[in-house]
Amino acid sequence: MDMIEVSGLVKSYGPIEAVKDIQFRVKKGEVVGFLGPNGAGKSTTMKIITGSMAPTGGSVRVAGYDVFEDPVEVKKRIGYLPENPPVYGEMTVESYLRFVAKLKGVSSDRVSKQVEKSIEKTDLGSVRKRLIQNLSKGFRQRVGIAQALVSDPEVLILDEPTSGLDPRQVAEVRALIQELKGEHTIILSTHILPEVQSMCERIIIINRGRIVAEDSIQGLSNRMAGSTQVKIKVSRSGAALEAALKSLKGVHGVVASDGGYTLQVSAGGQVGSAGQAGGATQDSSARFENSDLAVELIAETVVQTKSGLLELKRDAVDLEEIFLKLTTGEESQSPGGVR
């Protein structure tokens, strides 16, 4: 069942169109990452889904309810963390969470239980009696997340959940979201790439108010040309190795650095020794095997040349490149082109 259905969403501020015809679906229990540069329309889209902003056109359905016809039903099902955690500085963490729970319509006998649960999940036990204004940014962000969780909503919408946190806290928040994966349908926005990779099953890349790509991470990285990056360290440098790698089909770039001891190989498209990957270009599982194949072939080649393989690292972290390609590309690039 589709938990969230967004179709033909348009939002304009006067002559400026912040969101242009955004369309996507999210299945129950899915974790979807919203990716895009600042000002791409991520927050606007999220605000519209949560019902705090009305769109200029298009419709949003959450759990089968239309956001504009049954706003209360939709809002009961959504936990929302805006860019800035919506906290009252003069309240203590506990009283604030109790207030939010009641506001979200948690029945009186369940309020305490739900507050305890969200405090426990976000690990706020040590500060529960403190005033929120005296808490650090990281704790406030966690209070914000606790606030989104407190009504145990089916859908969680998190706008940049890790912004302003230190690396340890970022790791904690990511772990928390991992934990929440099964129970809730989650949409989270970010402009930090590793975040999406570590947390999301699917990404939607938005640029200038349009969806420029939508796929699983694997699918996305595989479909892009030059998506497989392999870093090799060898103990014996040699032109032979470089030449051998370059001669592989599908390898379209070998950059030797560090005096030839480190090589950066990029491969993609039609990979393999002749004929092997002939027809396998259409469905994404085939492409996935393709990139595996590329790594396999490269490894084989390195061993065959007896260069003394010390390290072979596959850089899946190529999302960055995809992202840049998609978001800095000229406007004229049609959204369907990548899709």
Binding site: S52, E73, K75, Y80, V87, Y88, V100, K104, Q147
Partner: peptide, 11 residues
Amino acid sequence: NQTMALLLTSP
């Protein structure tokens, strides 16, 4: 405080 967002997204 940006808490208006909380009120507006509550049921």
